[in-house]
Amino acid sequence: MLKMFGLKKCSTCQKAMGYLDEKRKAYHFSDVKEDELSKDQVAKWSKALGGWEKMINRAGYTWRGLPKAETENLTEAKAVTLALKNPSLIRRPLIEHKDGSVTVGFSEKVRGFIG
């Protein structure tokens, strides 16, 4: 079963859930603001994606609203801590696939991976 993480009100997450429902693909959805994330879980995602830069949305309102001191000179560990503190920074939807891989967003490539 796919595990999807995002925000209930996120239009991209809603589109992804609609797609999965239409394709009758089983998934579990967790709202990152309601369901507590662990440091190990977020660090695992970051590593699976190839680094925090692919996990953190630096174009959104949350990122732009953070103090510069929190976003400058980010390391992997600092980015994971920042994502735990501000879960809406995590690109959405984040999907854990059956094979253990992780994807973010809901592009054609991701849809093709799901089937």
Rank of each mutant, 00 (worst) to 15 (best):
V110D: 00
E96L: 13
E72I: 12
D40N: 14
K98L: 11
H28V: 12
N57G: 07
T103P: 02
T103F: 01
K78M: 12
M17W: 00
A77M: 09
G100Y: 07
G115E: 07
M55D: 03
E108I: 05
K3A: 06
L89S: 06
E76Q: 15
K68N: 14
L20S: 04
G60V: 10
L2G: 07
N86D: 12
H97W: 10
K33N: 10
K15L: 09
R64C: 12
E36L: 10
L82F: 14
D21T: 14
E70Y: 08
A43F: 12
A59V: 11
N57K: 02
Y19I: 08
M17H: 05
M55L: 15
S46E: 02
N86E: 15
E70A: 15
A79W: 05
K23T: 09
A43D: 07
F106E: 00
Q41I: 12
G115C: 07
R111A: 15
E72G: 11
F113T: 10
E76C: 10
F5W: 07
P93Y: 02
Q14K: 10
E76N: 10
E72N: 15
M55N: 05
P93V: 03
L37N: 07
A79R: 02
Y19M: 06
K109A: 15
R111N: 09
I114E: 03
R111F: 06
R24Q: 15
S30Y: 14
D99C: 11
M55R: 03
R64Y: 11
K3F: 05
K3W: 02
L84H: 09
M17E: 05
A69L: 13
M1T: 14
F29D: 00
T62Q: 03
E76V: 11
S46V: 09
C10S: 07
W63V: 09
K44P: 01
S46Y: 03
A16V: 07
T62S: 08
V102R: 00
G65A: 08
A77N: 12
D40A: 15
D40C: 09
I95W: 00
R24N: 15
G100D: 13
E96D: 06
A83G: 13
L37F: 04
M1N: 06
E108A: 14
Y19L: 08
G100L: 14
K54G: 11
E22P: 09
A69D: 15
L37Q: 09
W52R: 08
M17Y: 00
L94Y: 02
G18Y: 07
S11Q: 06
G18R: 11
E22W: 12
S107K: 00
I95K: 03
H97L: 15
A43N: 11
K25L: 14
F113Q: 08
A59D: 10
I95P: 05
V32A: 01
K47Y: 10
F113C: 02
I56T: 11
F5Q: 00
K68I: 15
K98Q: 13
G105T: 00
Y27N: 05
I95N: 04
L66P: 08
K47M: 11
G18P: 13
K23I: 12
Q41R: 12
L82K: 06
V102P: 01
K3L: 09
V110L: 05
M1R: 02
K15Y: 02
I114C: 05
E22G: 13
F5P: 04
V104M: 03
Y61N: 12
F113D: 08
T103V: 11
V110K: 01
D35K: 02
S101H: 14
T81H: 10
G65E: 06
L49N: 08
